[in-house]
């Protein structure tokens, strides 16, 4: 009876059910989506209108493009990081709910609770990114991407979001409280800034530059910028795929193990 294909179809059906549950939560409290997009939009405006004048000179000599065009990929990745923090908070809250104890006593695909969260967050994050890009277009963002590049950019972003979301689900379950869960994700917010998101890395002091060149957000940003603005990507895409596979798979296995461990109250 329990062959592989029925196990897989049960996992799909249960994950879809859990995703519906997650989407219902989101629709009931839509302010969460707006908050997730609000912070990056504010940062975008800050960089373009307040700091852009000063920073733009340095960038202009490096890339020959306007500052808003340069900064959008970094802001998009900040959106991803902000949303990952939101995911950690909502997973952390959810794990304390009685309903999750009920799920544990039911004959369902165990990981589906987590899959529902991850897929829900993926949808929510992509919507937030769309909002941020929409605002960017209004303030002068002029990407050179054609349809193929746009699709590529969406695919790369979905891959990054998926990987970081699994990581944040795992971190949320390691944390003993909602506040800790939220704090654990804060470093993720700093990474886009210490990569090539807002200024080119060769303008940084040596130590930081070394870090910036090897941390995952730099290839993420270079790939995205390459796809949207036609700048050279180098080995950005390969590095991005590698990082995402490592972070995503690691996060998935870790989260799954944490969920299967005995619940402590």
């Amino acid at each position: 009876m329990s062959n592989v294909s029925s196990t897989v179809s049960i996992a799909f059906a249960d994950s879809a059910t859990m995703l519906r549950r997650r989407l219902r939560h989101m629709l009931r409290y839509p302010t969460l989506i707006l908050t997730a997009a609000g912070v990056p939009v504010a940062i975008l405006l800050l960089f373009v209108y307040v700091l852009g004048g000063a920073l733009g000179d340095g960038v202009g000599t490096a890339g020959g493009m306007s500052y808003v065009d340069y900064v959008v990929p970094g802001v998009v990745l900040m959106t991803v990081a902000t949303a990952a923090q939101g995911t950690a908070i909502s997973v952390s809250i959810d794990m304390t709910e009685g309903i999750v104890a009920r799920f544990r006593t039911m004959a369902i695909a165990r990981v589906s609770v987590l899959t529902g969260h991850v897929l829900g967050s993926l949808i929510q994050t992509m919507l937030s990114i769309a909002a941020v890009v929409g605002v960017a277009l209004l303030v002068g963002f002029r990407p050179t991407a054609a349809l193929g590049e746009w699709l590529g950019a969406i695919g790369v972003l979905a891959m990054i979001v998926l990987a970081l979301t699994w990581l944040s689900v795992a971190l949320a379950m390691v944390a003993k409280s909602v506040a800790t869960a939220s704090n654990m994700l804060t470093p993720l917010m700093i990474l886009p800034m210490t990569g090539s998101g807002f200024v080119p890395t060769d303008s940084m002091p040596t130590g930081l530059r070394w870090f910036a060149e090897y941390q995952p957000f730099t290839p993420f940003i270079e790939t995205l910028r390459g796809l949207l603005m036609g700048t050279p990507m180098g080995d950005g895409l390969i590095l991005t795929v590698g990082w995402c596979a490592a972070i995503g798979l690691g996060g998935y296995l870790w989260a799954k193990r944490l969920y299967n461990r005995e619940p402590t109250r």
Binding site: R21, R24, R28, Y29, E97, G98, I99, R102
Partner: peptide
């Protein structure tokens, strides 16, 4: 269970 296991949202 002893404490309600319903989804409040």
């Amino acid at each position: 269970g002893q404490f309600a296991a319903v989804d409040g949202f």
